[in-house]
Every structure is written in structure tokens, then in C-alpha cells.
Design a protein around this nucleic acid. Structure first.
Lengths: 147, 147
DNA sequence: CTAGCAGATGCGAGCTGGTCGCAACAGCTT
DNA sequence: AAGCTGTTGCGACCAGCTCGCATCTGCTAG
């Protein structure tokens, strides 16, 4: 997504009556332009390159609010800090327990499980919140991780 | 599982050269006899009914060691503390985001996803570590939770 | 049955990731 | 340009867990 995407998001939020502050805009920009799967702390670092006085709690509160508004979602890829991304990019994750590799889960597998859970249990799955752990092809073969 | 299961477990651990202490035996007993999905803190409470001086860090260290030995696994059912159970009982979990209901994931769905991940990505899934979140049938209908 | 060593324990300090209350501040509307 | 109200910086605080250290205790050898 580009700066255009950022402007679109900002416009949408403004229409929802959300106040656009410097910190909020920078958090969104870091999410739009930055690397995938940033943690709150990484977002803070990015934000601070532009506005050094932004406080960690501000980033947490913004992420919380943006999540409430359906613009952002957070995902746990493992035992550490949560990672954040735009809700439009929501997808399941497979994470290697050994080397940490995180890949997008094939949509057909996710869909099949969601349909099955609905049919068998009436459960509506939102399978994006926690990653599914395992071993990537390389680590499963017992080779040293490529990194 | 019964006390017989506990004795079998203890025998196996002893064969592996593991020292059987009071605290360790009580942790195992709480896992064998107690309710499903206890947190470390709940296990501590149970253990302390028999041995009041056992320390939290002892429970954590025992769980860690038992997990290393393949006897115990831990699972994250949501944002709070991890839950522990015997490795023999390992299974996937579906958890309702609204009412907290946790049900065992149907094995065929788990298996299908694991086979698909292997075929498409070479990924060996161990889909027991994190629950899959969603809404249970009741909450999905918008009814108040039964609890 | 006892001695002694390695491994386990109790204890408290400390760490990470995140939340909260509060007073000062700043978007947005009029 | 004033003022209402949401947002911010700040620091204290919290849960959940980990670690270092001195002491203690299963277990094995003798």
C-alpha cells in the first residue's frame, strides 16, 4: 500500500469522527509503509524517528483504538510481543518453532477448517489471532535454518 | 487418567533418571487428577493444598522440565496465562472470544489442515500450541452466554 | 544405613509486554 | 478565536514468567 492508502485511511477515520493527531497518523504510516508484522515496540521506534516524544502508551492506545474501529488487527506469532497489521491484510499464519519463519497460511486450508467448524460445531472461526506453529520444510528436514 | 496413570508416569520419569521430589509428584498428580486446562497458578494452588510451602517458581521449573521431557505440553487459549496438560492428551482447541468456551477441535479438521500444509508448503504442523479463536454457536447467534 | 554429590527447591529480585489514572494539551466545530 | 472533548506524555502499576543464589534432599555407591 502507498501513501495514497494512508490518505484513504485517514479520510475514512475522519468520517468516523476520529481525531487525526500526529501520533495517530505516524502509527498508521508505519503500518502502511513499514515492514510486515511489526510489534508495538517496533512501531514506536519508527514513529519516534519522526516525532521523538511520542510515548509507548500512546502507541498502545492508538493500536487498541484502531483495532476497535476495525482498521487494524493484532496477531500472536509466538511467545513474544503481539504483531500488528492493517485489517485489510488479515490472514492466517504458519510459524516455524525452530527458525521463526512466518508464512501466510494457504487460504483454502483456513477456509476448509472454518467451514468444518461451522458445520460440526456451529463455531464461527476467526483464525487470524494466533499463528499455527510447526516446523518449516527446511527445519523439518533437520537442516540448519537458512538465516 | 487415574492414580495408576500417575504411578506409570513416575516410573517412566525415574527410568529417564529424573529425580522424583514431593513438588514434582504433586504437580503431576494435579495434572492427572485435576480439571482440564489448568494454569500454572491453578496448579500451584492445588499443589499447596498438600504442600503449602511449594513456591511458584518451582511449579514453573517443573512444568518446563516436564515439557522438555515430552510428558507435558502447554497451550495458549487466549491472552491470559498458559494452560498445561499431559502430552498424551494433546489436542487442538477452539475458543470463543466472547464467552471463553473452549472445545476440542475436531481431529479431522486438524488433520486436513496439517496434511494440506505438508503438501503445499512442506510445513509440519503442530497445531496444539495456540487455540483458534472465534465465536461459539450461542454467541454467534447473538444470544447471551449460557454462563 | 550412611555419606556425599548433583540436581531440586525456596526466596526474592528482575524482566517483558502491556494497562491505567491524571493533568496538560491540541483537533475540530462554530 | 474560543472552547469542548478526545488525545497525549508521564509514571506508577500489573500479570506472567524467569533467574541467581544459598540451602536442602533424592538417589546411588559403598
Amino acid at each position: 500500500m502507498t501513501l495514497d492508502g494512508l490518505d484513504t485511511l485517514v479520510a475514512r477515520l475522519r468520517q468516523d469522527g476520529v481525531r487525526i493527531t500526529t501520533a495517530r497518523r505516524l502509527v498508521l504510516r508505519a503500518l502502511v509503509d513499514g515492514p510486515t508484522h511489526p510489534t508495538a515496540d517496533e512501531l514506536l521506534t519508527t514513529v519516534r524517528t519522526m516525532a521523538p516524544d511520542v510515548h509507548a502508551s500512546t502507541v498502545y492506545r492508538n493500536l487498541e483504538e484502531l483495532e476497535r474501529l476495525g482498521v487494524v488487527v493484532h496477531t500472536h506469532l509466538g511467545h513474544g510481543a503481539a504483531t500488528y497489521h492493517l485489517a485489510a491484510d488479515a490472514h492466517g499464519h504458519l510459524v516455524c518453532e525452530r527458525c521463526g519463519l512466518a508464512v501466510e497460511a494457504p487460504q483454502d486450508l483456513v477456509d476448509h477448517m472454518a467451514r468444518g467448524a461451522m458445520r460440526q460445531l456451529g463455531f464461527v472461526l476467526r483464525p487470524y489471532h494466533f499463528a499455527v506453529l510447526g516446523l518449516c520444510a527446511t527445519c523439518a528436514r533437520g537442516e540448519p535454518p537458512p538465516a
